[in-house]
Design a protein around this nucleic acid. Structure first.
Lengths: 366, 366
DNA sequence: GTCGTTGCTGGTAGCGCTGTCAACGATCCT
DNA sequence: AGGATCGTTGACAGCGCTACCAGCAACGAC
């Protein structure tokens, strides 16, 4: 044989080729583009690889081909349930493909994001998934100069770098408020935490809906930069109540806050929905099972991640999607917590959750 | 110049070396082991690298050095809150180090784990973090043959492959049951979902504690292989109640189930803790803010991840920890949901959460 | 003065794989 | 029939970096 085995005893492509009786480059092609091989050689290489337990050396491949099979993913938080659903979608879509996921956490800092982006780009990723549309100018320039497909996720907006998949947080918030108005609520408070750009846009949607109805008042809005939590929901609601005792509804920027508000109402013996209606955001699983069941705006997080990764992989392989910007929309899932107070819709004391009425609203992005 | 720039315009180590007036290998050493250079060259290389914006090519480095700077992490689920906390710890610890995290999801399948392990090992990772102690024999053999440090996380047990960090789920469950006994509860049910090995060991702990007290009955145990959820907690509890209407406490294998049980009690107008005590597991954030506040077994998930990654990195760099097996213990956080029914400890209807009493129990691993 | 010894530096030779291009036979068209 | 085309295969030459070892100066011990 030409070369002796490496000392580590690892199987190299050359060994596979030798056993299959083909040249190394032919063996290489088997992994890269099997259709290019004759059926005979294809099966020979295949069985040789299997017999030897060959596993390709990714570093060598990356070095020789000048590209990696890595998809970089930049998300702002690892803790947030929302992102774990998105991530699960991304990982699921990448499974079975040749691409592996490289995850980094920007911790909601666009400066950190810029730094990570620089790092990622230097390794020539096959593709990139970034969260949101609020990059720094520098990041934006890097993304535009990158010679790989890019998907922005979580929201839709103007000027996509490349592809984009999400929904309009602004419209979703407006739909939630419209629902509350339809239930006869007028004094609708807003409770928000962390106040990242997407929560900010939900707030903007809330403000515009309230202003349209001539009902906006600054004191109805309680926010904090603190990371969100159930406990925080209770605390912010307490604040809100102190400012506006006549409150008849609360729109929470996420479901954890909504749950906190619900518990706080229970603690204070405030009837939900009789006195106060509660609407959350994201429709996490527990919302349907709370007592009373909690209204929320359903967002397609898993699907978003999965579609983003699928689109990205397609684009990497040269098949660009016909619609590079995808609006996944949202749905207001009406449940007991926001029923009209006139209707006799007390929390069911036995039996399962009430059936969900849905108000489907594919969000239109501006 | 010896070689011309690559077409991609990327800065290579050779360019840095040229600008600094040293050989490529000296420049290389600057990144690998700066102390080996004279101060003069060190600063020259440093400024040259900065001036050119040099970013090393990881693929080339990996190929040449026969090792990567990747830490492989195998976890069973991306959805589970528990793992997102652990992951956050791992990512936090890896930040600032030279190592990057490569995450894979085994979906609670040890066969899938074995497959992924094979994939990982072929890339010669710098280190590995695997979940639990229940690998297949094949996986176990691969791990033992691997020439990199390995940390098993989430639990402690006999025969660590290398390092190990976690706690005893068995002891934790026993402590939870002991707490319920101390509150005068006797008919304690068990509610569990997914039934992965760690949940199974919690069940084992429950069973042994109940048997020790002569109170064990098979019908007190309700489990399912279905993934856990809040809604499922309610359903399993409904089952349990049908089997044993005289139930006076429920030990839930996790907090989501506990929340579901709480909601179901509310739906059925069952007093908590007057009629039924509830104890959860993990002490997620919402437990302290529920009404009534929910007792749970606190586990140090973030710390576990962080310490695991820190230990691993230390070991990779040749500094093996003095204690390769670390038991992080647990604490039973007593809250309203499991107060003695004799005491007048109704759920506080106003004011914040009750102060937490803690029962600290560093778990002893068998 | 000779002989290590230490500290720093450079030359050589790949790591395992793939891009490029050329070569080959088989097939098709005029 | 002759040339063009297609499908399949192989030779060659690196990708950018680092392991290994040799070289060289400075230094101290005897």
């Amino acid at each position: 044989m030409g070369r002796k085995r490496t000392k580590s005893g690892k199987i190299r492509l050359a060994e596979v080729a030798e056993l299959a009786g083909v040249s190394p480059i032919t063996a290489s092609r088997f992994f890269r583009n099997p259709e290019a091989l004759s059926v005979a050689k294809r099966t020979r290489v295949e069985s040789a690889a299997k017999e030897l337990g060959y596993v390709p050396n990714l570093a060598a491949r990356a070095l020789a081909s000048q590209r990696t099979e890595v998809i970089g993913v930049l998300i702002p938080s690892l803790t947030n349930n929302v992102f774990s659903d998105v991530l699960r979608g991304i990982y699921d879509a990448s499974e079975g493909s040749r691409y592996s996921i490289q995850l980094s956490n920007t911790r909601y800092s666009i400066l950190q994001e810029e730094k990570l982006l620089r790092l990622f780009l230097a390794q020539k990723p096959a593709g990139l998934i970034v969260t949101g549309i609020d990059q720094t100018a520098e990041s934006r320039a890097m993304l535009e100069a990158a010679d790989c497909p890019i998907v922005q996720i979580m929201e839709v907006g103007p000027n996509p770098v490349d592809m984009m998949i999400g929904f309009s947080h602004y419209d979703a918030a407006r739909a939630a408020i419209a629902h509350l108005f339809a239930q006869g609520r007028r004094k609708v408070g807003f409770v928000g935490a962390r106040m990242d750009p997407r929560v900010q846009r939900r707030l903007d949607g809330y403000v515009s809906a309230m202003k349209d109805a001539g009902l906006f008042e600054q004191r109805l809005v309680v926010t904090t930069a603190t990371p969100t939590s159930v406990t925080l929901g209770g605390a912010l609601f307490t604040d809100l109540l102190a400012r506006e005792p006549d409150l008849d509804a609360v729109f929470c920027a996420n479901d954890d806050l909504a749950l906190g508000v619900l518990f706080e109402c229970r603690r204070r013996e405030i009837g939900v929905p009789e006195q106060i209606a509660i609407v959350g955001f994201n429709d996490l699983e527990f919302m349907a099972s709370a007592v009373p069941t909690l209204t929320s705006v359903r967002t397609n997080r898993y699907e978003m991640g999965k579609t983003a990764a699928t689109m990205l992989i397609e684009a990497i392989e040269g098949r660009r999607p016909e619609h590079p910007v995808l609006d996944l929309g949202f749905k207001v899932i009406e449940r007991q917590s926001s029923s009209s107070r006139l209707s006799d819709n007390r929390p069911a004391l036995s039996g399962g959750a009430a059936p969900n009425k849905m108000v489907a609203l594919p969000s239109s992005h501006d």
